[in-house]
Design a protein around this nucleic acid. Structure first.
Lengths: 166, 166
DNA sequence: GCGGATCGTCAGTTTTACTGACGATCCGCT
DNA sequence: AGCGGATCGTCAGTAAAACTGACGATCCGC
């Protein structure tokens, strides 16, 4: 076994072009990286990215039932139950029965939830900036616009095209 | 009770702007949608997106050990074991001991693997096109370029910056 | 030829999200 | 009234993906 030491470890070898040309790889790893940044940014507030998203939606729109919340976020309604369980345990949101339809729960932010959301949102925005840093200003705008176009084929009535797989 | 039927179900309500403005949401759901498309495109060949990516990398670069493969794909080496187990069970790749270092396995495509890859790659490319359809030609290029810039901060030695969390 | 590092493997765990089922409730119709 | 079908929230079980920690075999520098 002579000199097999040709180039075995000498090239650190990032991902090969065959991969960085594939949109699937790029999207997945970009998403992972941003999720990481977001998670660390949100950790001080005791919430993760998905929980933060729930808070945002609750804050953004008129009082919603759990199912309506789930639909808007593109998650399953059983997933939403667990999500709200978490947030309610942290006293950030509150369920209360919908007086108009007692099958439903109306979910709203608590005072603490509003406070936390304000701080968390700003921390998360900073993480997003860090994610985009080094990118020309206009590219960041492009990126959002293109992603919205690609995955938000919204039909006339405002409903999302793809039901909500997964 | 009276007329609570004001606007409860009348607005189908896609994702609110508060979400489609968040890069995390966009990236995640774009990735999910593409993964879905890719999965159905690859199903006829009995492989999924990750397995296809492994085949691509194996085909793209000189014979690699499992660890080198894992590094280039940004996955854990234990994940790679399971991945290759699958592909070997399907007779698409073959492990053979590296004659120069008997700790290592060199992984290569089988004849069937090469055939499958060729067909699968083309099917997957079509899925990617379907994903991008309706998008101006140049935007597709933009998207890839921006994603590569955002998540491929490659240091001088060619290694990826973020080790490989998750 | 010894000690530390590397590679592949395996078992166990975590995270995330889904399916299927169930009780409570609502709504249209008779 | 009240019956039947649909809807909402819930829970248990499951599946996929990926990680941690440990282990044996092997390599490499000294």
């Amino acid at each position: 076994m002579g000199e097999q030491s040709f180039t075995r470890e000498s090239a650190p070898t990032g991902p090969p072009a065959a991969l960085t040309n594939r949109l699937g790889y790029l999207l997945k790893h970009a998403q992972l990286r941003l999720a990481d940044l977001g998670a660390s940014a949100l950790a001080p507030f005791g919430i993760n990215g998905r929980e933060c998203a729930v808070l945002i939606v609750i804050d953004d729109v008129p009082p919603l039932s759990q199912l309506e919340l789930a639909r808007r976020m593109g998650v399953d309604r059983t997933t939403m139950v667990a999500l709200i369980d978490e947030l309610e345990a942290k006293a950030l949101v509150a369920r209360r029965p919908d007086p108009h339809d007692r099958r439903r729960n109306v979910v709203g932010l608590t005072e603490s939830g509003r406070t936390t959301l304000r701080a968390a949102r700003s921390a998360h925005d900073q993480a997003e900036e860090r994610f985009l840093e080094g990118l020309p200003e206009e590219d960041a705008v492009h990126l959002k616009r293109i992603l919205r176009a690609v995955m938000g084929p919204v039909s006339d009535d405002g409903r999302q095209e793809r039901p909500q797989k997964r």
